[in-house]
Amino acid sequence: MPSRFEHRATFAAQAGDVFSTLVDEMFLTARLRDLGGKSAALLDHHSTGESAAFRLRQGVDGSKLPSVVRSIVNGDLVVEREERWRGYESAGRATINGVPADITSRGRLTERGGGTELVISAEVKVAIPLVGGKIEKVVAEQVTKLLAAEAEYAEKWLAERA
């Protein structure tokens, strides 16, 4: 059974500014440089006024992986993510090299009390008998930490440019 989780982040900025930042090519490139790990790269990026789509790669050093993941992944972990935004709503998907895993997400920016809240609902499915559930939980925990770090990075970026 897939592992589901939700992540919430708040920003002092208005939703339009948060959206513009989260899909900005310069922001994404800087975020990947600072948080993306080994071999991080922005692989594709398209943006118009109210929509955006991008694909990126992030890496995790194999020595930093939990043992349950190291048992099935040889070497470093490479994650490819894609996000599509229409207005203040997103749909995302991620895959992990060498792991029959699928991560899907939906996000929404909402104006809240002079700021903005980002809510991301996600699901992790790992199709490995016996250990798939354990790996799903590890992946969900790691993705939650990554989303928190990315939100903190975005908040700092917004504050520096206000």
Score class of each variant (00 low, 15 high):
residue 72 I to G: 11
residue 82 E to I: 00
residue 65 L to V: 06
residue 65 L to G: 08
residue 77 L to D: 10
residue 84 R to W: 12
residue 74 N to A: 15
residue 97 N to E: 12
residue 74 N to C: 12
residue 94 A to V: 00
residue 85 W to G: 08
residue 71 S to Q: 13
residue 98 G to S: 10
residue 66 P to V: 03
residue 74 N to I: 12
residue 62 G to D: 07
residue 92 G to M: 07
residue 98 G to L: 03
residue 63 S to E: 15
residue 84 R to T: 14
residue 78 V to N: 14
residue 73 V to Q: 08
residue 88 Y to P: 10
residue 69 V to M: 09
residue 91 A to D: 14
residue 86 R to G: 11
residue 93 R to E: 11
residue 69 V to I: 09
residue 101 A to T: 06
residue 63 S to M: 11
residue 61 D to R: 06
residue 86 R to T: 14
residue 76 D to W: 05
residue 95 T to S: 11
residue 77 L to S: 09
residue 95 T to E: 13
residue 103 I to P: 01
residue 81 R to C: 07
residue 102 D to I: 00
residue 76 D to A: 08
residue 69 V to N: 06
residue 77 L to H: 08
residue 83 E to Y: 07
residue 98 G to H: 04
residue 86 R to A: 12
residue 83 E to I: 02
residue 64 K to I: 15
residue 77 L to F: 06
residue 61 D to T: 06
residue 86 R to V: 13
residue 102 D to N: 07
residue 96 I to D: 11
residue 63 S to N: 13
residue 90 S to Y: 03
residue 66 P to K: 13
residue 74 N to D: 15
residue 86 R to S: 13
residue 65 L to N: 08
residue 97 N to C: 02
residue 60 V to L: 10
residue 100 P to E: 13
residue 76 D to Q: 11
residue 85 W to T: 08
residue 88 Y to W: 14
residue 91 A to T: 10
residue 82 E to R: 01
residue 79 V to L: 09
